[in-house]
Design a protein around this nucleic acid. Structure first.
Lengths: 92, 92
DNA sequence: CCGACATATTCATAAATTTCAATATATGAA
DNA sequence: TTCATATATTGAAATTTATGAATATGTCGG
């Protein structure tokens, strides 16, 4: 993973609202953006903004379902991110 | 690990200068703050600021050696951070 | 088509972050 | 003690980020 990509993912993870959303959506198969508003307890535009950051970092998959957008965790990105971190520790 | 602690570590990792410093200091046993200035190619106060953020997130150990401060990677923090991420993926 | 709803975008504001010059502190050497 | 060096802190400017009101877009049901 490139340094830029690593930093982008870390930045996406570095906000408590976004982390709360990620933690919550691991439990169910799919969540709508509206579900995420309830989790975050913030306005719709703000949550939409946070979801975009998570999506741009490839931490979320999204899928249209009529009027809804269903989001789910992108496991591969999280695993690749972990691998990059463990690369640091394994060099010691 | 608490959510606050997770977010603090992610924030510390979410800057390219800080990530570059962390990557570099895995190679040698110990680095001085001056070494980190060379790595970062930024002013001394700026690097000192970045090192403080890494230290506050427990990503760096530091040890005084006369006039110098030697910094090294805190492997345990990185591993605990990874564990928290993998907790997310394992719930899917 | 129209009204209701889900999500995205624009715009403005407030807060946080990055950066460095200047300065302070601390330590070793002469 | 005095000077030179290593690091920390302060203060200020520029940039980025988080937030929400207003608005736009898109989709379903009638």
């Amino acid at each position: 993973m490139s340094d830029d990509n690593f930093v982008k993912i870390a930045k996406a993870l570095s906000d408590k609202t976004r982390f709360r959303i990620l933690k919550e959506i691991t439990d169910k198969k799919s969540y709508t953006c509206g579900d995420c508003e309830e989790i975050a307890e913030l306005s719709q535009p703000t949550v939409s903004h946070h979801l975009k950051i998570l999506f741009d970092a490839n931490l979320l998959n999204s899928e249209k379902d009529g009027r809804f957008v269903l989001v789910s965790l992108n496991k591969k990105t999280l695993e690749a991110f972990c691998d990059s971190i463990l690369d640091l520790t394994n060099k010691i």
